[in-house]
Design a protein around this nucleic acid. Structure first.
Length: 424
RNA sequence: GGAGGGAUGGCCGAGUGGACGAAGGCGGCUGUCUUGAAAACAGCUGUGGGUGUUAAAGCCCACCGGGGGUUCGAAUCCCUCUCCCUCCGCCA
């Protein structure tokens, strides 16, 4: 949510940001118009209320029955007028709120111009792509051959874009989850286990609603929303709270499954486990003071990169361009790992600074030490990392000529002695 | 799912139609006293919005779980929803 103050004082800031995102700027004037109407109305309503409060008090104190009756009659007529204006105001406020909630975050100056993901900027590339003296297989061949990936039964249970992990495959994913969580908790993140179904207001707070409802699963009977990322519950952990400055920054990590309809990308990338309706992810989330969010962003990005380094996966870091930048983000870095079998860079992490955008929606504030006024915190989120794509890279990059796959050493503590996955 | 009881400020807890943004206590902050601390005493101590200002003060409005209603006037009466507690049922 953008601060309404920006629309009053510097609406060009919003217009420029929208233009950079290649979006229509006309809603800016609608907001300004509605805001002016609202404030004019509010002042009239509050004036009448003040008058009413004063008169009611006088009635209570008055001893003269005639005077009382006269004043009560006056207040009855005032009440009618007040009621009309209040109704008008009650219609106007949600209208303004609804409109304001559709504005994406202001784009940071450093975000490169671009229409879509093809114009993202590669900031750095780390590690060497593995070399093979044979033709490396993509995971959709490798997985079934190893007996750890079963597409047919996934489809039988749930349809396209679902799969089953078998035996050591399931264990590998579990090992990756544990490895990532332990890495993050070792670097100052507190682990949280959260609900995977949440209320509408929780999905709204992090910015997925109201605009992106069609990418979410929703239970109509009880009005639950299935989380598309742990960012959603982690944002609302401190919803409606006023935090102490001394407690900041607060850093969380959480493992959750993620549920997405993927309507937008119907038909795209249906092969393999790269894009499914359900996938697992370890997420990082930070609440901090505004002046610290830049440093916390770099910290979080380093924490995501560390996972790639420890797994020995070649990766690159992209600065997302304006056209690819998410709704809540001011700026975002994506991390992509190289997968040798399918020959692709796979996005495994997205680290974003949302500044006070989510904090406003979720009403998360802090009180500076010794200060009276509260301020909104800044929040950051980042994947650390998304499981299926890490699985793809681990399998494809560590395959050998005989079809076996060598498990990275850092995962051995969780693999129950298995160091190589042998083909069936 | 059934029956009953609850929800008040950071916490505890009073308040059944006007003097209540809300007694009292605890906690916190400031001051006096003290070499310092403790104790004692005094004062202050919620959030959001509007207006105002260089900034502030001030003034006004709203908020006693959420929404709606009755009334000149609601923490207080009525309806409804949510959540919590107790008992029964069911269950990993």
């Amino acid at each position: 949510m953008l601060d309404i103050q920006i629309f009053r004082e510097n609406p060009d800031l919003v217009r420029q940001s929208l233009q950079r995102r290649r979006q229509d700027i006309s809603p800016v004037d609608q907001v300004i118009d509605l805001d002016q109407k609202r404030r004019a109305l509010l002042q009239r309503v509050e004036g009448l209320r003040a008058e009413k409060n004063q008169a009611s008090k006088a009635i209570g104190q008055s001893q003269d029955p005639g005077e009382r009756q006269e004043k009560i009659a006056d207040m009855k007529t005032l009440g009618v007028e007040l009621e009309e204006l209040e109704t008008e105001l009650k219609d106007l406020e949600p209208e303004l709120e609804a409109l304001l909630s559709t504005f994406p975050n202001l784009v940071d100056d450093r975000v490169p111009e671009g229409a879509d993901e093809s114009e993202n900027q590669v900031m750095k590339t780390v590690g060497e792509k593995p070399e093979f003296d044979f033709q490396p297989q993509p995971h959709w061949d490798l997985g079934p051959a190893l007996g750890i990936l079963d597409f047919e039964r996934g489809v039988k249970l749930s349809g396209t874009r679902f799969y089953i992990l078998n035996g050591i495959g399931a264990r590998l994913q579990r090992a990756l989850v544990s490895f990532m969580l332990d890495s993050h908790t070792g670097h100052g993140y507190e682990e949280r286990y959260t609900p995977f179904m949440v209320k509408e207001e929780v999905v709204y707070a992090s910015g997925q609603l109201p605009k992106f409802a069609d990418n979410l699963y929703h239970d109509h009977e009880d009005d639950f929303w299935w989380v598309p990322t742990a960012e959603v519950p982690l944002t609302s952990l401190h919803k409606d709270e006023i935090l102490n400055e001394e407690d900041l920054p607060i850093s969380y990590t959480a493992y959750t499954p993620c549920f997405r309809r993927e309507k937008m990308s119907a038909g795209r990338e249906v092969r393999g486990i790269k894009r499914g309706h359900q996938f697992d992810k370890v997420e990082m989330y930070i609440y901090c003071r505004p002046e610290d969010s830049e440093a916390q962003f770099l910290r979080m990005q380093a924490d995501a990169e560390r996972i790639c380094l420890l797994l020995d996966l070649p990766y690159r870091v992209n600065n997302l361009c304006t056209g690819d930048l998410g709704f809540a983000a001011a700026y975002t870095s994506d991390i992509e790992v190289w997968a040798a079998g399918c020959g692709e860079w796979l996005e495994v992490s997205s680290v974003s600074n949302t500044r006070d955008f989510q904090a406003r929606r979720a009403a998360i504030r802090y009180r500076p030490d010794g200060g009276k006024k509260t301020h909104f915190v800044h929040t950051l989120n980042g994947s650390g990392l998304a499981l299926p794509r890490v699985m793809i890279a681990v399998l494809e990059n560590n395959q050998q000529k005989d079809g076996s796959v060598v498990i990275p050493e850092v995962l051995h503590p969780w693999m129950g002695g298995v160091e190589v996955i042998e083909p069936l």
